[in-house]
Structure formats: C-alpha cells, structure tokens
Amino acid sequence: MAAAKSTRFDIKSYRGFKSITLLCLFILYAPLVVVTIYSFNASNSITTWEGASFHWYADVFTGPESEKFKSAAFNSFVIAIVAATLATTIATLAATGMVRGGKFRLRALSFGLISLPLMVPEIVTAVATLIFFNSIGFDRGTMTILLAHTAFCIPFAYLPISARMQGIEDSYEQAAMDLYATKRQAFTKILLPLMMPGIISGFILAFIVSLDDFIITNFVKGAGVETLPTAIFGSVKQGIKPNIMAISTMLLGVSVLMVTISYLVSKSDNTK
C-alpha cells in the first residue's frame, strides 16, 4: 500500500477516486448479494431472517408454481439457444463480408443496419415488431419471440466477432491459398478456427441477451406463452416472494458463469 501513501506526489492519482470506485462496485453488487443471501432464508416472509435453508429452491422445483416456472425455463433456454445460434451464424458471415470484403458502397449502410437494434430504443423495437406481426397476420407465440430475438441478438454477436476478425491478419489465409487451398478451405480451415474465441464470445453474449430479454418478449409473446423474465415479472407485480429470489439467484448464477467463460475465452488467446 505504498501507492496510497504517495498519492499526493503521484501525478496520476486523485484522492477519493479509489473510494468512489469501491463505492461504485458496492452499489453494483450489494443488491445482487442481498437477494442471493435472502434466497436462502427459511422464513415465509421476505422481511425477517429465520436461518438458512434450501426451502425456496425446493419450492421452485416442486411447489405450486413449479409447472409454470419449468415451462418458462424450458421456453427461455430453447429460444436462447436457437436465437443465439442463428444470430451467431448470420453475424459470422456478415463479419466476413464486412471485414474481408474490401471496400464497397453499401458498407456504411450495412453497418448501420446491423447496429440498428442497438440504436433504436428497445421499447420501440418491441412495439414495431408487435405491429409488424399483427399487420401480416402472424399469430403470436414461441415463433414470434424466436424471430424477434434472433434479429435483436445479431449486433451483440457481431461486435465481438468483427473485433476479433480485425485483429487477425489475412496473411494466414493468403499463405493457405498460395499452397493451393480454395477460398472455402481457407475460410473453414484457417479463418474460422482463428475466429473461434470471438465466435464463442459472440454466441455467449447473444445467448445472455436473449435469455434476459423482457421488453421485446413481453410484447411479442402470445397469450399463455411465458419465458422466465415474463413469468418473474408477472409474479413480482403481486409482490416479491421468496421463491422469486431463488429463481433470480439461479438465473444470476447462469449469467455470471456464462460471462466468466466468455471473459476467460477471450483472455486465453494471444494470437495478435
């Protein structure tokens, strides 16, 4: 902690900035930690603490609302896996076209189109998608959620993938083609494997975005179709119950795990 002592003479550090950073981390994590702790509360009330137990976790899987949560979780995960797979495939192809496609007139426009879901406020995308499906007479249900998620996830998959591709020099592919590899072989045997960390990060981000989405899902889901966030929102409207905290903690765990994997994958490679 010698650094702390010499603060006054160190041109780079400002007094108080470290405290603010720690405060910032505290604000970010305190609510999550508190909910995680209270999910293990044995009490029926969310206010009083009556010792630790797995009571509410058991309730999620076997309690009166378990059927609802199970089908919501099933929908959420199936939609997230399919939407993320589609979005990642589309984004990988698009990134190849954008980063390895030379200069072309529609390039700026294409980039604008790909990042459109990030620029339009989410609630506007939700309204627009609902109106669109309604106007073409497409019945709302699992399929509408899946389509909306696929489109919305594309930029989240695209950004890490294209960032990664920009970091790979094309000399590897050129070398392969000098040795009589076809372009297709250079793509599948050289570029794709080098791209893997970016593709995995992109897939994971798209997966989390789909799994977490509430607003778009809430608009385009049909009656009776629920995903975990819409099911949780429905319950929370009647007050926060302990079983919701148990579900939240599990979902929180999944997200943190996935992001950690993505972080480690992107950190592990140093081909640059």
């Binding site: 209270y38 977490d212 943190v256």
Partner: peptide, 17 residues
Amino acid sequence: IPYWVNLLIRTVSMKFL
C-alpha cells in the same frame, strides 16, 4: 458483470434492497 445479469432481476433486487 452486473450488466449481464438480467435487468429485471437487477431492478427487482434494487427494489428489495
């Protein structure tokens, strides 16, 4: 990390706290 945790869960947690 907290950004990647479900926005709904974060908001509910904030309310709970």
